[in-house]
């Protein structure tokens, strides 16, 4: 099965790096297409990216070569050699180009350079995509793709067709608060009193059912009745924040 020239030998022994690159790329692509959660899609995107980096770095490998940093005998600057022993003639003799026979001793540095910047840019783009996910969650309350599509469709049909129910009603209290001016907080007029609390109560009840649903937080959610005013996280500030590094 693994004799020379067979496809197994060619793929799984000699070119295992390339084969694994193909497998990882497919895993990433499959996650990006078929996974439902957006965060999972982003992890798939990162796997895809690392697969491509693996491909590039595998290209640059040479058998029996060292890392792309000059050995002391090839180093024209001589900083390594100076530490090793006190041969100062390395510093005095002029720099010369590495001869062609020594070139295969070093791994190809070019793919490393390309991929080094790609990794850092990759984390920046990952952060950007995650921020878009957070924004989606803020707007729609979910990062699952099917629920998101459902909500988008519902919103589209509402916007296009007949009963413009929810959006105008949600917007009117804000408009009225703006136009009716400063009477918003003090004495509530009859209209705002009847109109305003409904959306807010609905939102609050929705959020409460959502967070109490997982049932892991039962002991802590007892004081969540009045969490409109209280921040969710109560963490005391540090004792002496200024003294740390001075």
């Amino acid at each position: 099965m693994f004799e020379d020239g067979s496809i197994f030998n060619q793929l799984l022994v000699e070119r295992l790096n390339y084969f694994i690159y193909v497998v990882l790329l497919l895993i990433g692509l499959w996650a990006m297409i078929a996974k439902n959660n957006l965060i999972k899609k982003l992890i798939g995107m990162s796997i895809f990216q690392t697969a491509i980096i693996l491909f590039y770095v595998s290209i640059g490998v040479k058998e029996g070569a060292t890392i792309p940093i000059y050995l002391p005998e090839h180093d024209p600057h001589g900083s390594h050699a100076q530490l090793d022993s006190n041969q100062t003639d390395l510093l005095s003799h002029g720099a010369k180009v590495l001869e062609a026979s020594a070139v295969p001793n070093y791994t190809n540095p070019l793919p490393h350079v390309l991929m080094l910047t790609a990794i850092v840019v990759g984390v920046a783009t990952l952060g950007l995509a995650l921020s878009v996910c957070l924004r989606i969650y803020r707007g729609y309350g979910t990062v699952e793709e099917d629920e998101l599509l459902e909500k988008l469709e519902r919103e589209d049909s509402r916007k296009a067709g007949g009963s413009n129910k929810r959006r105008p009603r949600r917007r009117t209290p804000a408009n009225k608060g703006g136009t009716a001016g400063q009477s918003k907080r003090g004495q509530t007029t009859e209209k705002t009193k009847s109109d305003k609390p409904t959306p807010r109560r609905r939102q609050a009840s929705k959020s409460r059912t959502k967070t109490n649903g997982p049932a892991k937080e039962q002991p802590k959610s007892s004081n969540k009745e009045n969490d409109k005013t209280k921040p969710v996280k109560r963490r005391r500030p540090a004792k002496k924040p200024k003294e740390d590094e001075s």
């Binding site: 640059g60 792309p68 940093i69 000059y70 090839h74 180093d75 024209p76 600057h77 900083s79 390594h80 720099a95 010369k96 180009v97 590495l98 001869e99 062609a100 070139v103 070093y106 190809n108 540095p109 070019l110 490393h112 350079v113 080094l116 910047t117």
Partner: peptide, 23 residues
């Protein structure tokens, strides 16, 4: 290109780490 980078980095820039020099 790669051979040129490996051979000439030391003369051109005196930096032992080729990756830094190319970068």
């Amino acid at each position: 290109v790669a051979s040129h980078f490996i051979a000439n980095t030391g003369v051109d820039t005196e930096v032992p780490n080729m990756v830094t020099a190319v970068l």
